[in-house]
Design a protein around this nucleic acid. Structure first.
Lengths: 158, 158
DNA sequence: TATTGTTATACTCTATAACTATA
DNA sequence: TATAGTTATAGAGTATAACAATA
């Protein structure tokens, strides 16, 4: 007896994709009551931990293109969760800081999201969960390396 | 010394998302020469392994909504990689089969994609890679369970 | 010249409602 | 009535080119 997708299920990439899709709905439901999406949550989390971070640095940390960050920050600034202030030394740049409301918001949302996230590894030992995260970061690094460098698919076909 | 995203990096969900994003570009580059995308590759792979599968069953296997499958199959049918034939017993349903060209296409693409996919787990032992895939499937199951059932975030806050 | 933030745009993936033809 | 496939549509996420202001 064999399932319908044995070939696909042997691929790390396919299982990452399926896990991500499966996550999306739940994360959305957790964040919705806070008026946040995945991207706005991530941005607010980093800003709260790094008061005064520049937009371009934030974009790099989150691996989001600068143009795509604009709307995300607008969405956080409008309800007063963050503030954009001009840098004194470089008047091109904005410095981002979370307001008190923003810090309270991310703390409350993080509590719920962590509970959901731990539910995702239900039945796994703490070391397994840590190993999973470590492995995912390896995949992320290897994936980035693959298209930064030379051609792909030339991986020792001899 | 501490990185900018320690909170986010403690979440399995965030690392899954980052790994998936990192994968996307490379997979796209590998599949492009074959005229395939991630979704068309997945569909063709399952059809090739399951001659005569119905569209609705394929949608369920791939966890894709039926409407979204239509365009994917059009994209495979136009260049003659698959065929849609009416079911004799149920004239509402289509039976999907891969053509010879489709089977050759998926075989060639799979070879390249597997090489890339193995590159993603470079430096990991075979058991680690297998454990990663198993863990991802657990995450996928737990994620689906979370939003099928009752409220989320009520996970033993006592 | 190069960089910061921005606008405009486009492509992919995903999700829902409503239609048609068959059952 | 229920199901299979379809159409239309809308929301996210992601990517690139080009611009104004500033360095």
């Amino acid at each position: 007896m064999m399932s319908f997708d044995t070939d696909l299920r042997g691929l790390v990439g396919y299982n990452v994709k399926r896990a991500n899709s499966s996550l999306l709905v739940g994360v959305g439901k957790v964040l919705k009551p806070f008026g946040l999406r995945r991207t706005t949550y991530s941005a607010l989390s980093v800003i709260a931990q790094n008061a005064g971070i520049k937009q371009s640095d934030l974009a790099q940390v989150l691996a989001i293109e600068r143009p795509n960050l604009v709307q995300i920050l607008d969405e956080l600034q409008k309800p007063g969760l963050i503030e954009r202030t001009r840098d004194a030394n470089d008047r091109r740049a904005y410095r981002l800081t979370a307001t008190t409301a923003g810090i309270e918001k991310i703390a409350a949302a993080a509590k719920k999201l962590r509970a959901f996230d731990e539910h995702l590894t239900k039945g796994m030992a703490a070391e397994e969960r840590a190993a999973l995260i470590a492995a995912l970061r390896r995949v992320e690094e290897n994936g980035a390396e693959a298209w930064e460098g030379r051609e792909i698919g030339q991986v020792s076909t001899t």
